[in-house]
Simulated scan of single mutants.
Amino acid sequence: MQTYRIIQPTPALKPFIRYYWILQDRSSGIVTQRTLPTGCMSLVFHRGDRLKVTSRNEFQPHSFICGQESGYSDVTSTGDIEMIVVVFQPHAAKTIFRMSAALLRDRNVAVADIENTALRDLAHKVEDSKNHDTCIELIEDYLYKCLTYGVSYHLPRLAEVVRHINNSTQTNIKTFANIACLSEKQFSRVFSEHIGTTPKDFLRVVRMQRTLSVLQHNPGIGFARLSYECGYTDQSHMIKEFKLFSGCTPKEYLARYTPVSDYFNF
């Protein structure tokens, strides 16, 4: 039996946290799931058996920071899964962890390997807590304490850039730099430090997530119209990009999976 729950953060944390999700899966047998880049970093706590990353033939750490991802991965569950995941706003993780988000790209960094006593203590408390609501309270208390050390003055300008990206399919780095009131060189550096990937690669991930969202809400749409609505130059460009991030063409993906956008749904 599987249960999946989305929890919204308190209003004061909403500029930093998109949502929390909790997954419990008591299914018997081996279950494999393909995960795609979401455009957001996350903090993951395993309270049950850990997921196995098939491509690397290794288990995820018990608790870890998941950096920005540039490609798909397949994960396998073989036991009782119980996960609590904090999904950050794209630009907010650096403010919480006090390190360049670019250092975490394509990495699952174990909390045990980070010199952050408070975060390690949180991981132990979440693992030992009796119920999920208490876990969320502990996580939010930790996040509030992180914010007492101050917020990057770049955060509002990056939030505005991300808002523009979310609302526009046709844009460029020059426009982003103007919104952020920075030179293009400064903007690219600040963007990578806070968001964990380059502006160009982030745009590509968001465009792929937009494609999933359109397919999710308009399943009968033709691929030519889909590519136009999502900002690709043409249909072949969309197919090439989609395959890069998902491992299969849109047609192949629809035959195997139900399209769901983790970025635009919440």
Score class of each variant (00 low, 15 high):
Val161Gly: 02
Arg163Lys: 12
His164Tyr: 12
His164Ala: 01
Asn166Gln: 14
Asn166Glu: 13
Asn166Asp: 13
Asn167Ser: 10
Asn167Trp: 06
Ser168Glu: 14
Ser168Asn: 15
Thr169Ala: 08
Thr171Ser: 11
Thr171Leu: 05
Asn172His: 07
Asn172Thr: 00
Asn172Tyr: 03
Asn172Ile: 01
Ile173Leu: 06
Lys174Val: 08
Thr175Cys: 00
Phe176Gln: 03
Ala177Arg: 01
Asn178Pro: 07
Ile179Asn: 00
Ala180Phe: 13
Ala180Asp: 11
Ala180Val: 12
Ala180Pro: 06
Cys181Pro: 00
Cys181Met: 13
Cys181Leu: 09
Cys181Phe: 06
Leu182Ala: 05
Leu182Met: 15
Ser183Phe: 06
Ser183Asn: 03
Ser183Ala: 07
Glu184Phe: 00
Glu184Ala: 05
Glu184Arg: 10
Gln186Tyr: 06
Gln186Arg: 15
Phe187Asp: 01
Phe187Ser: 01
Val190Met: 11
Val190Gln: 13
Phe191Ser: 02
Phe191Asp: 02
Glu193Ser: 01
Ile195Ser: 03
Ile195His: 04
Ile195Gly: 00
Gly196Ala: 08
Gly196Thr: 11
Gly196His: 07
Gly196Trp: 07
Thr197Glu: 10
Thr197Asp: 13
Thr198Val: 02
Thr198Phe: 05
Pro199His: 04
Pro199Met: 04
Pro199Leu: 02
Phe202His: 14
Phe202Tyr: 15
Leu203Arg: 14
Arg204Pro: 01
Val205Gln: 06
Val206Arg: 10
Met208Leu: 12
Gln209Asn: 13
Gln209Tyr: 08
Arg210Gln: 10
Arg210Leu: 11
Thr211Phe: 03
Thr211Leu: 02
Leu212Glu: 08
Leu212Val: 05
Ser213Met: 09
Val214Ala: 10
Val214Met: 14
Leu215Cys: 12
Gln216Val: 04
Gln216Asp: 14
Gln216Cys: 11
His217Cys: 05
His217Asp: 14
Pro219Asp: 03
Gly220Tyr: 06
Gly222Phe: 02
Gly222Pro: 01
Gly222His: 05
Phe223Ser: 01
Phe223His: 05
Phe223Cys: 02
Ala224Trp: 00
Arg225His: 09
Leu226Cys: 04
Ser227Gln: 04
Ser227Val: 01
Tyr228Glu: 15
Glu229Cys: 05
Glu229Ala: 10
Glu229Ile: 12
Glu229Met: 13
Cys230Leu: 00
Cys230Asn: 00
Cys230His: 00
Gly231Ile: 09
Gly231Trp: 11
Thr233Cys: 12
Gln235His: 11
Ser236Gln: 15
His237Ser: 13
His237Ile: 06
His237Gln: 10
His237Leu: 04
His237Cys: 12
Met238Gln: 08
Ile239Phe: 08
Lys240Trp: 07
Glu241Met: 09
Glu241Cys: 07
Lys243Asn: 14
Lys243Trp: 06
Leu244Asp: 11
Leu244Val: 15
Leu244Thr: 12
Phe245Leu: 15
Phe245Lys: 10
Ser246Val: 00
Ser246Arg: 01
Gly247Thr: 01
Cys248Met: 15
Thr249Asn: 08
Lys251His: 14
Glu252Cys: 07
Glu252Tyr: 03
Tyr253Trp: 07
Leu254Tyr: 05
Leu254Cys: 09
